[in-house]
Amino acid sequence: MSGWTEIKGRAVALAQSNIDTDQLIPARFMSAPRTDGYGDFLLHDVRQDDANHILNRYTNVDVLVTRRNFGSGSSREAAVYALVDFGIKAVLAPSFGDIFRSNAVNNGLLPAQLPEADIEDLIAAIGDDDVGATVDLSTSTVRIAGQELSFDLDPVWRKKLVNGWDDIDLTSQHNDGIQAFRAARFAAHPWALPTS
């Protein structure tokens, strides 16, 4: 996966709270292989029920601005695949589901946390249109709707996004330590090995 430091693109607002991963990708699409592309599955049923949905009117979207608890619920990483394959590279919200945030960073999608008041101002400023937006990971700032805002981002996650790093590569250098840990753990706590 390739990393990124800055994106300059278009942003829209989705003025809803609690957009869960079941809405982001309904379960029935999750048996598809990733190589088919997941972009069409993004908010599939919601978009099909509402021809005027913001993501039907604008399909060239890089940044999504939305309300609290985005990506809550099911751990399905397919929700992130749908966003990424649609073309979205950053989501700005007051809060995210914990598992979703990790999944996002593992796939090059920035979950940028901003104060609720900033998000409400942005949603009001963007309305039903799309606007230009620039996201800069090196400074943790976003320029959007005439404002420059700072977001919270875990420094490790910044590194992963910028470098497109994969944890499996990072962990291989700890292989000896892991093997030693396993041996010590089961020697001290033999009951922790499954019997039968």
């Binding site: 914990d98 598992i99 990790s102 944890d167 499996i168 962990t171 892991i178």
Partner: peptide, 22 residues
Amino acid sequence: FGVGATEVAHILATQTIWQRRP
């Protein structure tokens, strides 16, 4: 705790997981 697919792959490959302490 629950994890996503990339983390599942990591656990399969290493029997470990990177986590920030909640």
